[in-house]
Design a protein around this nucleic acid. Sequence first.
RNA 1: GGCGCGGUACCCAAGUGGUAAGGGAGAGGUCUGCAAAACCUUUAUGCGUCGGUUCGAUCCCGACCCGCGCCUCCA
Length: 492
Amino acid sequence: MTLRLFNTLSGQLDEVLPADGVALRMYACGPTVYDYGHIGNFRTFLQVDMLRRALRLFGVPVRHVMNITDVDDKIIRNAAASGVSIADYTPRFEQAFLDDLKSLGVEMPEVLSRATEHIPQMVRLVERLAEAGAAYMAEDGNWYFRLKAFPEYGKLSKKDLEGISDGARVDVDEYERDSARDFALWKATKPGETGWETAIGRGRPGWHLECSAMAMEYLGESFDLHAGGEDLMFPHHENEIAQSESATGKLFARHWFHVRFLLVNGRKMSKSEGNFFTLRDLLLKGYKASAIRLALISVPYRHQLNFTFDGLVEATSAIDRLRTFATRLRAANLETGATVAGSAAASRAHEEFLAALANDLNTAEARAAIFELVREGNIALDAGLLRAEDRDAMLRALATFDSVFAVLTDNDAAPTRAAIEWASENGKLDQVAPELLAAQSLTDAEIDARIEERNLARRQRNFRRADQIRDELAALGILIEDGRDGVRWKHK
RNA sequence: GGCGCGGUACCCAAGUGGUAAGGGAGAGGUCUGCAAAACCUUUAUGCGUCGGUUCGAUCCCGACCCGCGCCUCCA
């Protein structure tokens, strides 16, 4: 099966295959490390993660490059406000970002590239553009891209060059430029300001330049797929295309993958709306990393996702259902052999799952295919009809599901613990949900001791005492479940 | 103003020119000292409104209403 994805450039579903027949070369615009990542950022990175996992599932090796923008206006502003250089300011946020990706189960790209480590490549690109007559230095020392040099400008975002100024705010006072729409490649800086001494003058890169230079550095002048949030389509990606193709004369990226913005409580996320959340905010409120991951990937990437706390609760329950089923399957004592119904259910789930992903990464439909399997498997288990080979086939279907969704294995404790530690180190303990904090205060051994005490009370049929202990633990966020084969507990 | 997306049950959310996936929540049931958990069953004559095309439309076309996004730093 081949993955077909919507391509912003062609405006249709295109098959995603490596042009060189070896590995799919993809570039994804990464974060600007000036602050902690928010869930909007992570929806995009998570969907790119789904894409690379799906490609691998379809047998396509991936060479994935992600940039880290570690120099830009906001970084310079924030670093200055903190009284440190940008080199001292950004590592903390870069590490936080990478930690957050790990918490969410996002795989690391094959290459991480920092803008500040590729200044020579960027300078060379400006020089090439200047030679081609597509770049010029203005009186202010800034280098600009000459839009008139690239007639195809607007082909990605389907914008008419003439229409761009309509209603858009264009700084008409920038008289140094040939055209108000020419964009900055390189910004001149004065000594003392953040900058590099280079052949094209002292300065720092414009935002768009870094992606072109680094994509070409690691993937070549022409590569398979370029990904990013929908907001980057214009002007960022349009500018990348203009710069790159003007310099090389080659098609920059064949396929453009854009992830739609999410909404939070029905509105665009913004600090002023009060609906702005970082991953850490959510972990500290007690939501599990796996639930956040599932909530952010369950709506297909081209659809607007409305992110809510209710959605996180739902995702939590959905994951419990999946994990319980997997556990139940593994623990079941089954006769050897297979049944027609059991095998059919497993293979159909498997096929429907793959078909859904192949169809423009329809994660909602893919998820549904697996939940149908859960229901059918549970019914067969209840009826005692499932055989060992059916079970194995179902476990394989679940494994396939999880190779892309990655929510089945419970790795939730570590991110939560790390978030609490982080809050503690940064004076934010007041933001931690009380139950979460209370639960952390008890060691597992202490919990086990309390449960043993309760078991004793139960054996003596002292149910008042037993219920009292259960309530006390519940107040600390520990849920007790009496099962046939012993007592289990879990964090709420 | 230009470009684009969406309106499907209590909530989230797929989908198809032939009669509505899945998840959550609610209700009922099994199990249990009780509870929880788990499991099963169940919940839209209906897919924003009004027209049109068609044997037949939620799905196609048109108009309208509503919500949202991009066009400016932004994932």
